[in-house]
């Protein structure tokens, strides 16, 4: 790592982000079907230690994507996959928007 690597052709930021977005869409849209359906650590402990019953119904359980399932789609693979892809798109749009607004313009270290 100490040798200069200027001769290497550097992966462009655009390519990196496109590959990253495609990997994320694949994870959320396809791989998520194979995720463990066991309760996560918190819900498991809540069940074991007797405070699971204090959970209340979710205020947005009427959302078309509640529970990472698409309302009206019977096929579990498709239903979860669509919800995952929509979620990635919404998070991505909000995050790219927010961080583009917040960023310093150019490379000026002292700019604001």
């Amino acid at each position: 790592m100490t040798s200069p690597r200027s001769s290497h052709r550097r992966l462009s930021t655009r390519t990196l982000v496109v590959v990253g977005v495609l990997v994320s869409l694949f994870l959320a849209g396809v791989v998520s079907y194979y995720a463990s359906s066991h309760p996560d650590g918190l819900m498991f402990v809540a069940g074991e230690k007797g405070f699971l019953a204090s959970e209340k119904g979710h205020a947005t359980s009427g959302s078309p994507f509640a529970g990472y399932a698409t309302h009206g789609i019977g096929n579990a693979r498709l239903s979860g996959g669509i919800a995952g892809v929509v979620g990635v798109a919404v998070v991505g749009a909000l995050a790219f928007g927010l961080f583009t607004v917040l960023r310093r313009r150019g490379h000026d270290q002292h700019g604001d």
């Binding site: 930021t13 655009r14 990196l16 982000v17 990253g20 977005v21 990997v23 994320s24 869409l25 994870l27 959320a28 998520s32 995952g84 979620g87 990635v88 998070v91 991505g92 909000l94 995050a95 790219f96 961080f99 583009t100």
Partner: peptide, 12 residues
């Protein structure tokens, strides 16, 4: 752009 990618990757 990397920060936007990190957010959607964490969601996925």
């Amino acid at each position: 752009p990397l920060a936007g990618l990190v957010a959607l990757f964490v969601f996925a």
